[in-house]
Structures are given as structure tokens and as C-alpha cells.
Design a protein around this nucleic acid. Sequence first.
DNA 1: AATGTATACTTGAGCTAGCAAGTACTATAT
DNA 2: ATATAGTACTTGCTAGCTCAAGTATACATT
Lengths: 155, 155
Amino acid sequence: MSTQVLSEQGFQAWLGLLRGHAALVRKLNAELIADHGITINDYDVMAQLVRAPERKMRRVDLARSVVLSASGITRLLDGLERDGWVCKASCTSDGRITYAVLTDEGLAKYRAARATHLASVRELFADRYSCDELEQLAELLGRLDGTPLACETDD
Amino acid sequence: MSTQVLSEQGFQAWLGLLRGHAALVRKLNAELIADHGITINDYDVMAQLVRAPERKMRRVDLARSVVLSASGITRLLDGLERDGWVCKASCTSDGRITYAVLTDEGLAKYRAARATHLASVRELFADRYSCDELEQLAELLGRLDGTPLACETDD
DNA sequence: AATGTATACTTGAGCTAGCAAGTACTATAT
DNA sequence: ATATAGTACTTGCTAGCTCAAGTATACATT
């Protein structure tokens, strides 16, 4: 019976994750597009770059960290490069590697988006959860993905 | 400072939701496609229909319950209809409404998919959480979406 | 009855992402 | 030195989704 209960609760959690994600992403993504002309994934990638050393990362690592396929990252970065937020850099020691580098313009763009985006996220979560609950939720969700969560501190 | 903490934790929770969702959906979706030739959304829609009265629902309600746009539901159902899992039914009292009805074949298909899908979900969550934690997680995630979570019981 | 508004649904265009296959480079083994 | 395997990245194709616009039906007001 224990495993039946586990299955039940597991499924509830799964459903909550599916629906909650869809609802929030829809809202936040629409907001970012309307206010800044970038998608959530664009933002997410820039956020990763901001806190990487020299604001640059290998495309593979970037893909893994935002859970995108290799081709997905290529095309997403195509867009960011076209707009000038990101540029390429090659690696002297390994010819296969191309870095994605956040440009100064990209940094400015990110900071501008961050202001409104963070406020929305805060609002959405503050409305529903207490401080303790948020801590719990963050910890629990953090376990779903192997990679450690990057911290959203001052950049 | 309290709001700063809230912002921090809120953002961590948000990141966890994003990454966790992406990782899980990717895995579970690939599994469903490989094993049964349906996507997670297909499954999700059939799961809603299964527990609806007469296994039928209005397309709008279906869209809302799986967090899809109106056009999204139309095209998703196009696919399910083409494969024979779902068929249309019209409403006698309101000409605007078209119901989506899960066929007997659709029910069988759903049950077959459910067997492997539920096992995967259970495994993924059981690996990472205790029974109590699952309950907490489910409750917390449930608050993100206004709609009540449908229960995954025997159909 | 006629008009205006809201709801249910569909369709066309465009975007994003994934898979599979291909290129280019590196590391390993013989 | 050469073959083999592995990694990093890109490109062609396709599926799925959204938005905007359009059709059809229902309801409300006058």
C-alpha cells in the first residue's frame, strides 16, 4: 500500500509541476516578450552567461544548464547574436569549442529585463507562499535536476 | 530585508520549476513517444477525458485543463481523431459547442500508455522524495494553478 | 426583429524545439 | 602514422504551439 500512496502523491506532484509550469511560463514569457522582446529561454541563457567567468560559456554547457538540445542552443544563440546581445569566441586550445559571450549590450539588456522579470516572479510566488514554504519548495524542486541552481544575486 | 529573502527563495523555486519541468517532460515525453507513439499532451488530454462524464468534454474546457490555447487543442485533437482515439460529438442545445469524446480504442490506448507512464513517474519521484515530501510538494505545486488537480485513480 | 457583444471553434502564418545526419576537430589505440 | 572513437557544433526536416483573424452560434438590449 505504501507504494500505492507514493504513486498517488507522485502523480499529484507531477500534475502540479506540469500545470504550474505551463501557467507560469505562459504568463512570464508573454510579459518578457511584451516588455523586452526576449523569451524566457533567452533570458535564462543570458542569466547563465552573466554569472559565468568572463561572461562566457561553451555552448554544450549552456545547453545542459538550461535543459535544451544542442541544436536548440545553436538556434537560440543565433537569435541573441543577431540582436547583438551575445557574440561568439573561439577556444585556442580546442578547435571544436565555440564560446557564447554576453556582450556589454547584452548585459545591459539582461539587467533591464531582470528588473521587471524578478518583480513578476517575486509577486507570483509571494502571493502563494510563505517564506518557509518557498524555501521548502525551492529545495524540493532543486532535487529534480542534477545540476546545482545558479543563484540570482547582484550581477 | 525580508522581501529580499523572499525574492531570493522565490527565484530559486522558479528556477527549480523551470529546470525540473524541462528535464522531466523531456524524458517522459520521449518515453511515451517511443513506447506508444503519443506525446505527453496527448496522454494528458486522454487522461482528462477518461474521468469526464461519458468520457466527453468541451474543447474549451479541455484546453483550459491542460493549459493549452484554443488552437492548440484543435490541432492536438486533430491528431487524436486521425488516430481514432477521440471523436467529435455535437451539442444539441448549443451549436457552437463540439465535444471531444474518448473512443473505446482511445480508452484502451490510454490504459496501455498509463501502465508504463505511471511507472516512470512513480520511479522518478520515488527516487528523490519520501512519502511526506511528496505530499508537501504536491500540495505546494497545486497552489500554482487555480484549477483543482484531477486524481489519477482507477478508470 | 435587429443590432451588438460574447463565446466556441478553426485556420493561416510564423516561431521554437527536437531528432537525425553531417562536419570538424580531438583523444586513444595499435 | 593511421584508424577508431568520441566530442562540439550546425543544418535539414518536421512536429507542435501560439497569435491573429475569421466563421458560426448564442445571448442581451432596444
